[in-house]
Design a protein around this nucleic acid. Structure first.
Lengths: 131, 131
DNA sequence: AAATATTTCGTTATATTATAACACTACCTT
DNA sequence: AAGGTAGTGTTATAATATAACGAAATATTT
């Protein structure tokens, strides 16, 4: 067993806490400056926490934004992420659609081999930006 | 009309040419060092060419790799990209699957609004790496 | 408990990726 | 030929991310 108490460390909790409180994807250096008063003073501290949080599924990275969001815990697919991203304001929400998740999980390439993970980013315009 | 002869400029051709000759996604600074003998000496020259090439659909960016690939010209969906990426060697191929492309293009969120674009990255292990 | 291994930590430095800004050039349109 | 737009070359710098190292904390084995 790697870790008896499967708990997050102090730094990991601090970073997760900040991400969860944000209602938008946050950037690593934004996290850094916002938690610096809690003792995290250098990029590696943030990136290390992020790495762990992503590994355990608490956080996802939005690749096209170089930003991070908390998992909304409705993740249907453990190995895949689906996000809708507003092209105008970057507002991002995790999409929980069983059909879509199943379609992607079951998808096989030409050779019939299945994939082990996926990341889908859907771009559109959010309600507020349309209005 | 913006540009009568809808042609690529010299720099754009140089960059596209290099990307097309590569059999893997290439990084911007790798492009830069490889075409420096052709006169492109600073990052903005490469990034500007890339921007244009992406705009006209000749090149796609692989977000999770910060890399660029030439469109294989079998793009089914003009506003969406689908790539399979080998987790082990980064070998990337554009996936041309009509069903999947249609499913994604037609996908609507909870409110019934359609998206204007998407980017799907499928992660797996390529033939060579499996062997 | 002591010894060992593993993970995390704080820190400095640096690598990698990408853009701002500015003056200038080439070309297209009228 | 005059004006507009897009592209160019350049310098500098911003933004994102990791390498490396030794110390500290936590787990596991003895």
């Amino acid at each position: 067993m790697k870790n008896k108490k499967n708990e997050l460390t102090k730094n990991q909790k601090i970073v997760l806490d900040f991400i969860q409180k944000s209602n938008k994807p946050v950037k690593a250096y934004s996290i850094l400056s916002n938690v610096s008063k809690k003792g995290l003073k250098a990029p590696p501290q943030v990136y290390r926490a992020l790495e762990k949080l992503i590994e355990v599924g608490e956080v996802h990275k939005i690749e096209s934004l170089n930003s991070f969001v908390a998992c909304n815990s409705k993740c249907i697919e453990p190995n895949g992420t689906i996000f809708s991203i507003c092209k105008s304001c970057d507002q991002t929400t995790e999409v929980s659609n069983a059909d879509l998740a199943k379609f992607l999980s079951d998808f096989k390439d030409m050779n019939g081999t299945q994939f082990s993970g996926f990341n889908l980013e859907l771009f559109g315009t959010c309600k507020s930006c349309k209005a």
